[in-house]
Amino acid sequence: MVIDKVKKVNKVEERVKNEKASDMLIGKWVKCDNCKEILYKDDVHKNYSICPNCGKHFRLSARRRIKQIADEESFQEIGTEIHTKDPLKFDGYLKKVEALKEKTKIEEAVKCGICKINGEEAVLAVMDGNFMMGSMGSCVGERITLAIETSIEKRLPLIIFCVSGGARMQEGIISLMQMAKTSAALAKHNEEGLLYISVLTDPTTGGVTASFASLGDIILAEPDALIGFAGPRVIEQTIKQKLPEGFQKSEFLLEHGFIDKIVDRRDMKNVLAELIKLHKKI
């Protein structure tokens, strides 16, 4: 990944700029991993972290995502009292998590809250791929479930931005059970007749795909995002051949009937607000 290389080059700067370390683009210049164009970082950020040259959607931190979606100053975070757990007492796990928190200034792989989107109130959960690849352990499952339950309690629409490498392996079976927990909570949400919009971003895989990501009343995706249950490498090892170009990308899922609409990041906020308005009880 080109962005990873850029990150390495700027390691010193990264340490200094702790606050911004959670973003994918660090340093003044960045090379687009799609069109190879050298881009001025500020231009990219002003353009919703989309390559101004080719339209490639770069990965976003939860913090930046919330800024793009929620009305200014409207996001009130919930679930900050829920922290990482270590059910397996897995060697070095909590230490690694603590070090990561310190380095990235991110609390866990999801941020949840209540906010307004073009004036429409909603519960918003945003996963963060910069924290252990957005993997779902107990903390992510608990926070997502709290977001679902808050949405039920307050009779608000629910929006979840997904990005995940899958289950948090270090939490073993407890991480697997978060799939059941979040799906059961969405079953309740569904019975209540409330709106749930799931937004899939690059990459959404594994246990998150096999639970809440796939259960939206409406499922949106960003362009060119990798979305699947099994990762491409696992599939290639299983079938012993290379996967065709574009396999498991947003456009492929749209073609196969598993998402409703691909939405450019620059339009995302307006599309979400419109969908919420269309579901308002008159």
Binding site: A210, S211, A213, G228, F229, A230, V234, F247
Partner: peptide
Amino acid sequence: AYPGMGAEERGQGEAIA
């Protein structure tokens, strides 16, 4: 669950969820 191409094309994640 089987990690094959067809499984992905037919929505393995959706089926489980």
